[in-house]
C-alpha cells in the first residue's frame, strides 16, 4: 500500500485523444451567432430590466458557444491540405473567433451582423473544401439543400 503510494506517478499525460465524431458544420456556429443577433434586437426593444439582464447573460453564453464551434472547425476539421488550397481560412477563423469575443461584450447589432458574415465566409470555404459531403450524414445534407 505504502509502496504503491510512493510509486504512484505525480504527473498525468494524455496518450489518447478525443475520438472525433467527424461531423463539422459552420451552421452550428451560425445558429449561436444568430441567437446573439436576435437577443440584441430583443434587448433593445425591451424596457424590462430583468429581461435585459437575462438577455446579456444568455448572449454571452451564445457568443462563447459560437467561438467554441469555430475553434473546433478550425482545429479539428480543416487539415493542412485545406489550408494549402484555401490559405484565407486561417485568418477567417481567427478573426471570427475574435469577433465572437467582441459580440460577447457588445450590444451593437452591427457587431453581431459582422460575425454572421464572417461565419458565412468560413462556410463558403467549408463547402468548397467538400465539407457537406465529407462531414454530414447524407440525409442531413439533403434536408438542408
Amino acid at each position: 500500500m505504502f509502496l504503491s503510494r510512493l510509486l504512484k506517478p505525480t504527473v498525468t499525460a494524455s496518450a489518447h485523444c478525443d475520438l472525433p465524431c467527424g461531423v463539422y458544420d459552420p451552421e452550428q456556429a451560425r445558429i449561436e451567432a444568430e441567437s446573439c443577433y436576435k437577443i440584441i434586437e430583443k434587448y433593445k426593444a425591451s424596457t424590462d430590466e430583468l429581461f435585459k439582464t437575462r438577455a446579456i447573460v444568455i448572449k454571452e453564453e451564445r457568443a462563447e458557444l459560437a467561438k467554441h464551434h469555430i475553434d473546433v472547425l478550425w482545429s479539428d476539421y480543416f487539415k493542412p491540405e485545406h489550408v494549402q488550397k484555401y490559405p484565407e481560412i486561417t485568418e477567417l477563423c481567427w478573426k471570427a473567433a475574435k469577433q465572437c469575443s467582441k459580440v460577447k461584450g457588445s450590444l451593437d447589432l452591427g457587431d453581431a451582423k459582422t460575425l454572421l458574415d464572417m461565419i458565412d465566409k468560413i462556410a463558403d470555404v467549408w463547402t468548397k473544401a467538400g465539407g457537406p459531403q465529407a462531414t454530414r450524414v447524407q440525409n442531413g445534407v439533403a434536408a438542408r439543400a
Binding site: 489518447h16 485523444c17 478525443d18 475520438l19 472525433p20 482545429s75 487539415k79 493542412p80
Partner: peptide
C-alpha cells in the same frame, strides 16, 4: 484514425 496529433495542430 483516433488521434489528434500534428495532422491537427502542426
Amino acid at each position: 484514425e483516433e488521434s489528434t496529433d500534428s495532422r491537427a495542430f502542426g
